[in-house]
Amino acid sequence: MSPPTLNSDKKQSGYARILGSGAAGICEIAVFHPVDTISKRLMSNQTKVTNASILNKVIFREHFHEPFGKRIFTLFPGLGYAACYKVLQRVYKYGGQPFANEFLTRNFSHTYQDLFGQKNGKALMSATAGSMIGIGEVVLLPLDVLKIKRQTNPEAFKGRGFLKIIKDEGLGLYRGWGWTMARNAPGSFALFGGNAFAKEYIFGLQDYTSATWTQNFICSIFGASSSLIVSAPLDVIKTRIQNKNFENPESGFQILKNMAKNEGISSFFKGLTPKLLTTGPKLVFSFALAQTLIPAFDRLLK
């Protein structure tokens, strides 16, 4: 039997990739939007949380005194922006990474194999493809900005609708684009790389697309955890840039300087624990679901 090659993964159609990743994004937003709101508010908080009362105020803002049943519904701000952003993001990221991986396979597979060997080369190529896609994700930044502002700083809207904000702010909605790219490149590299290394070394898969739901789920845990840890400091800076009022922007370097001076180095990992416990499962869920649904849709469409 001839040895496996770096391009041994089965290729799915573009339609299957769009449908599978889009369905994963819809399921993710339906289940995890309140969790995402809590995570963003914790990352944006600049005060010390020393007791449950303060934590309650950080999470629920001015609604902290209301009955718990009512407070829960205050965790759904920006749902429209979030749904639009998340579905487009997942389609682009999960559906686009295989195309980038195929491009690298066609043009650089021998280079990766010569430099890193068979197994490492294939996994690193998948990681590199993820990093390329992660950098390009910056085109969706305005929707992410609006989602985060709705979750953490709704006063920034001042009664303006989506089209009015687009007209008024223009390219200002791309504020923080450099920090976003700086976060996405290593974050996506770690996400797809951790996932690929787990498939390669834990399950010994030659065709990554043949993984079962359980295998995809376990491998996604490795990828998601790696991604969140690697990107945490830049993610905090990005979130703080984006949650400022439109008329009072603050540069990423100024935020970095103030955080280091006033809050200490540990501030760059604010929200990491709840993020691993909340955003982690969300990312694992959608990533594993997309990897399972894409081959399933491909079989249905044939």
Rank of each mutant, 00 (worst) to 15 (best):
residue 40 K to V: 13
residue 40 K to D: 05
residue 41 R to W: 05
residue 42 L to V: 14
residue 43 M to D: 05
residue 46 Q to E: 14
residue 46 Q to M: 12
residue 48 K to G: 11
residue 48 K to Y: 10
residue 48 K to E: 13
residue 50 T to Q: 14
residue 52 A to P: 04
residue 53 S to D: 13
residue 55 L to C: 09
residue 56 N to D: 15
residue 56 N to A: 07
residue 57 K to D: 08
residue 57 K to P: 05
residue 57 K to Y: 08
residue 58 V to L: 14
residue 58 V to W: 11
residue 64 F to P: 00
residue 64 F to S: 15
residue 65 H to C: 10
residue 66 E to Y: 07
residue 67 P to I: 13
residue 67 P to Q: 12
residue 67 P to E: 14
residue 68 F to G: 06
residue 69 G to Q: 12
residue 70 K to Y: 09
residue 70 K to P: 01
residue 71 R to Y: 08
residue 72 I to E: 05
residue 72 I to Y: 11
residue 72 I to K: 06
residue 75 L to H: 06
residue 76 F to Y: 11
residue 77 P to R: 05
residue 79 L to I: 12
residue 79 L to H: 07
residue 82 A to E: 02
residue 82 A to S: 14
residue 84 C to I: 13
residue 85 Y to V: 02
residue 86 K to T: 11
residue 87 V to F: 07
residue 88 L to Q: 07
residue 89 Q to N: 10
residue 90 R to T: 11
residue 91 V to R: 00
residue 92 Y to I: 05
residue 92 Y to W: 12
residue 93 K to L: 12
residue 94 Y to E: 09
residue 94 Y to W: 08
residue 96 G to C: 06
residue 97 Q to Y: 04
residue 97 Q to L: 04
residue 97 Q to T: 12
residue 98 P to V: 00
residue 98 P to G: 00
residue 100 A to G: 03
residue 101 N to S: 10
residue 105 T to S: 12
residue 106 R to V: 02
residue 107 N to D: 07
residue 107 N to H: 14
residue 107 N to K: 11
residue 107 N to M: 06
residue 108 F to D: 05
residue 109 S to H: 09
residue 109 S to Q: 11
residue 109 S to I: 02
residue 110 H to W: 09
residue 111 T to H: 11
residue 113 Q to K: 13
residue 114 D to C: 09
residue 116 F to Y: 15
residue 116 F to K: 02
residue 117 G to Q: 07
residue 117 G to M: 08
residue 119 K to C: 06
residue 119 K to T: 08
residue 121 G to N: 10
residue 121 G to I: 02
residue 123 A to G: 04
residue 123 A to H: 01
residue 124 L to D: 02
residue 124 L to M: 12
residue 127 A to S: 11
residue 130 G to D: 01
residue 131 S to Q: 03
residue 131 S to E: 04
residue 132 M to D: 00
residue 133 I to A: 02
residue 133 I to N: 02
residue 134 G to I: 00
residue 135 I to G: 09
residue 135 I to A: 15
residue 136 G to C: 09
residue 136 G to S: 10
residue 137 E to S: 14
